[in-house]
Computed example of a mutant assay.
Amino acid sequence: MTHTATTEEKIREFVKFSATVTGFSEFDLWGTGQAEAYYETVVDREGADALQQAISSDPSAVAADPVVKSIIKLWYVGVWYGPELTGRVDVAAWTAPGRSGAKPAVPDDSQPEESLRRQATPGQRQHGQDRAGDNDERTPPFVVSPDAYTEGLLWRAIGAHPSGAKAPGYGSWANPPTLENH
């Protein structure tokens, strides 16, 4: 009888892998509260097979894998930049006026979230194609969850606090910053 991993086991494996590629401990990653949301995002956007391939790839090749680069960015800034956007950003798509018929500069509440992302079943996508199978237009980057920005590893890595959230307190500007040893 073969053992099929449960979703919980797959998330644990994802966090263990993420700890390796981000340089933060599994404890730190679980502490963000984002593990499940990030796992679901990767599986939804790239498919379970692409994630498993990234996790089980040769450690020397991991840094070159575009899915791995997207996972690292996801943990650090809380934004999903699909592999197709690794290394480049379509500035025109993000600076276009919101209601001119072009893609909105920032997703707004007037459009259901599901209409902003192309939907298809996991695994339907081939690397370099969008989930619907055509190459011409990709899903723009998006913030994965309401807490993703404030929980990004970026803030801990640079010894800062996210603007507008987790303020260090009144008068804290008078003290020099302290950096954690990572």
Score class of each variant (00 low, 15 high):
residue 62 V to W: 02
residue 70 S to R: 02
residue 56 S to P: 03
residue 26 E to P: 05
residue 117 R to M: 07
residue 97 P to W: 07
residue 141 P to G: 08
residue 123 G to D: 02
residue 47 G to S: 04
residue 14 F to Q: 00
residue 132 A to P: 07
residue 136 D to E: 15
residue 80 W to Y: 14
residue 94 W to A: 09
residue 122 P to D: 01
residue 79 V to R: 10
residue 121 T to N: 11
residue 29 L to K: 05
residue 62 V to D: 06
residue 9 E to S: 04
residue 29 L to M: 09
residue 114 E to R: 11
residue 87 G to E: 12
residue 113 E to L: 08
residue 31 G to M: 09
residue 54 A to P: 05
residue 31 G to Y: 13
residue 98 G to D: 15
residue 40 E to M: 12
residue 27 F to E: 15
residue 106 V to E: 12
residue 150 T to M: 08
residue 15 V to A: 03
residue 149 Y to I: 03
residue 144 V to C: 06
residue 121 T to V: 05
residue 134 D to Y: 11
residue 63 A to W: 07
residue 24 F to N: 12
residue 18 S to K: 00
residue 58 D to G: 01
residue 64 A to C: 06
residue 64 A to E: 15
residue 9 E to D: 09
residue 139 T to P: 03
residue 131 R to A: 10
residue 23 G to L: 13
residue 24 F to Q: 10
residue 87 G to M: 11
residue 96 A to M: 10
residue 128 G to C: 06
residue 102 A to T: 10
residue 79 V to L: 10
residue 62 V to I: 14
residue 55 I to V: 13
residue 61 A to W: 00
residue 45 R to G: 04
residue 65 D to W: 00
residue 35 A to P: 02
residue 106 V to L: 13
residue 58 D to M: 01
residue 111 Q to I: 13
residue 84 E to F: 06
residue 61 A to I: 03
residue 85 L to E: 05
residue 91 V to L: 13
residue 49 D to E: 12
residue 150 T to L: 04
residue 116 L to I: 04
residue 147 D to Y: 04
residue 28 D to V: 07
residue 31 G to N: 15
residue 120 A to R: 02
residue 104 P to L: 03
residue 70 S to V: 07
residue 96 A to D: 10
residue 90 D to A: 02
residue 66 P to F: 08
residue 109 D to Y: 05
residue 92 A to K: 07
residue 16 K to I: 07
residue 54 A to W: 00
residue 137 E to H: 11
residue 31 G to W: 12
residue 121 T to I: 02
residue 144 V to Y: 02
residue 91 V to Q: 07
residue 91 V to I: 13
residue 31 G to D: 15
residue 139 T to C: 11
residue 141 P to W: 04
residue 54 A to E: 02
residue 152 G to T: 01
residue 102 A to N: 15
residue 96 A to E: 13
residue 52 Q to E: 15
residue 91 V to F: 08
residue 89 V to W: 08
residue 138 R to E: 15
residue 30 W to E: 14
residue 49 D to F: 01
residue 92 A to V: 06
residue 124 Q to A: 15
residue 91 V to C: 03
residue 76 Y to A: 05
residue 31 G to Q: 12
residue 131 R to S: 12
residue 57 S to M: 11
residue 62 V to M: 13
residue 111 Q to Y: 06
residue 61 A to Q: 15
residue 92 A to S: 14
residue 92 A to R: 11
residue 21 V to M: 09
residue 146 P to C: 07
residue 146 P to R: 14
residue 124 Q to T: 13
residue 28 D to F: 02
residue 137 E to T: 12
residue 22 T to L: 10
residue 24 F to S: 11
residue 84 E to R: 04
residue 127 H to W: 08
residue 100 S to K: 12
residue 9 E to A: 04
residue 51 L to C: 01
residue 26 E to A: 03
residue 120 A to Q: 09
residue 17 F to W: 09
residue 25 S to I: 05
residue 133 G to K: 02
residue 89 V to K: 02
residue 28 D to I: 04
residue 122 P to F: 00
residue 114 E to K: 08
residue 27 F to P: 03
residue 115 S to G: 05
residue 100 S to Y: 11
residue 71 I to S: 03
residue 152 G to L: 05
residue 11 I to N: 03
